[in-house]
Simulated assay, not measured.
Amino acid sequence: MIDLPAEPMLATPVETFALPLDWFAEPKWDGFRAFAARDAAGTTVLRSRTGSDLSPAFPEITEALQRLSCSVVFDGELVVWEESRLAFERLTQRLHRRGAAAQRAAAARPAHYVVFDLLHVDDQSLRQRPYVERRRELETLFRREGLGAPWTLCPSTGDAEVARGWLAWSVAGVEGCVFKNGGESYLPGARSWRKFRVRDTLEMIVGAVTGTPSRPASLLLGRLGSAGQLRYAGRTSALPGAQAQIMGGLLRTAEADHPWGGRSFSAGWGSQETLEVSLVVPGIVVEISADISRDARGRLRHPARFVRVRADMAVEDVPPFEAGRPAS
């Protein structure tokens, strides 16, 4: 019987990059968190952090688990690479595929499983062991089993300069770093780890708002495409009162010929909920801070933070919307 934690150990977001003494850093991957496990009888499990069974959608990972010679419980991240970049959208496209369709997807765009923790091996639980010991056992297992694709051993370092170098991997879809206390045991559900996300500072054009133009709750943002059309690029998180008041004094309700007239907007990436929005004249430029996560169309996957109004910039000064992601 496979003894999986009820939930994974989690991380608290931090605003500054800091690696304390006796802590370790790992890259933060843009994928799906999942437990991967095999018991001594060869039974396998691939389970998401919310409890969903991912095994039918990713047969290449299940088959790799079956080839192991020991019982294991891994904690890690499912990822898909496309053109040297992590392709989160390709991962989501595979979630509901089964049988022959899942096998075809695995052949066309195989998933990899990035292992960053070992919670059980050879019928022995490691959860109460400190991170440094679990890491040592994980590295030993990779060597002993000669593990290659679809397995990937997540890098780990206690050197802050090495970890800072990983932030440059953001161009490939690595989101930042996770910091882990080397002496801490594995605590399901606890937010004892820390995560630092790489963020971009971007200029965007305000095309619509939730709330009202005079009292906006959040801003819907865009950039001009190659043909000069305003393309939707994402939205901000909720505006604090002072920022909402500033924007309310600048925004004007749009006329009938707004480029976003008649379209609807999702409440979040992958959500079926539709936002209620008010269109505004797309003449105000704002600066935002956003993490690097983008969808296949280059739009922000997560709400951005409003930083300030760019009264010194005209709409034409904003960098264009490029294929893959908005330009910086």
Results as ranks from 00 to 15, higher is better:
294 R>H: 10
105 A>M: 06
49 R>K: 00
219 L>S: 00
43 T>P: 00
64 A>L: 04
151 W>Y: 07
250 L>G: 08
72 V>K: 02
58 F>W: 01
319 P>N: 04
27 P>V: 05
228 G>T: 13
322 E>K: 14
54 L>M: 00
126 L>E: 00
12 T>N: 08
258 H>K: 13
264 S>G: 08
107 A>M: 07
196 F>L: 11
73 V>D: 06
325 R>T: 11
97 R>L: 15
231 R>T: 10
24 F>H: 15
127 R>Q: 03
107 A>W: 05
325 R>G: 09
302 H>T: 12
256 A>D: 13
256 A>I: 09
295 D>I: 08
163 A>D: 05
226 S>V: 11
99 G>H: 06
32 F>I: 15
181 N>Y: 12
250 L>N: 09
171 V>H: 10
17 F>Q: 00
310 R>K: 08
57 A>W: 01
27 P>H: 04
82 E>G: 02
207 G>S: 03
210 T>R: 11
137 E>L: 14
8 P>A: 10
228 G>S: 09
230 L>F: 13
260 W>M: 05
114 V>K: 02
290 A>H: 05
289 S>E: 15
173 G>Y: 13
144 R>F: 01
134 R>S: 00
288 I>R: 07
181 N>W: 10
14 V>N: 01
26 E>L: 07
52 S>E: 10
328 S>V: 05
299 R>M: 07
187 L>E: 09
288 I>L: 10
270 G>L: 08
215 R>W: 13
312 D>S: 10
149 A>T: 12
257 D>N: 12
245 Q>L: 13
150 P>L: 04
141 L>K: 08
